[in-house]
């Protein structure tokens, strides 16, 4: 199972990085979205996938999934939500000011004066 997940996470990261490297601002943001999905799944996988019941106390349940990675993911999810929202607004504000969403046209021209 972990093998499958690891490959899946690899695919997610590949796609994310590919999108982040692209020129379209929107694609870049989509890429960051995929990146965080990949990271979250990775935490879950690293915690081990062998648990047979949710980490909630209940009658008869004993082999809990590791709760700690879940808590970490929850934190990470919320944080990446905040960041994504911020980026999204930043993206459209940038588009509004620069009239382009082409990352190639957003080079810092005045750095080399």
């Amino acid at each position: 199972m972990e093998l499958l997940m690891a490959i899946l996470i690899g695919i997610l990261f590949t796609a994310a990085v590919y999108l982040i490297l692209s020129r379209s601002l929107l694609k870049v943001i989509l890429g960051t979205g995929l990146l965080s999905h990949g990271a979250h799944l990775l935490i879950l996988t690293m915690g081990g996938l062998g648990g047979s019941s949710p980490p909630v106390l209940d009658k008869g349940a004993s082999n809990f999934a590791d709760p700690l990675p879940q808590a970490l993911i929850l934190t990470a999810i919320v944080i990446s939500f905040g960041v994504t929202a911020f980026m999204l607004v930043l993206a459209y504000r940038t588009y509004g000011e620069h009239k382009t969403d082409n990352m190639n046209l957003m080079r810092g021209n005045d750095e080399h004066d």
Binding site: T32, L35, A39, L68, I79
Partner: peptide
């Protein structure tokens, strides 16, 4: 954002 994602996965590896 990239570095944060990297941070998270590194922590995951370590864990």
């Amino acid at each position: 954002v990239v570095s944060s994602a990297l941070f998270v996965i590194t922590v995951a590896y370590l864990y």
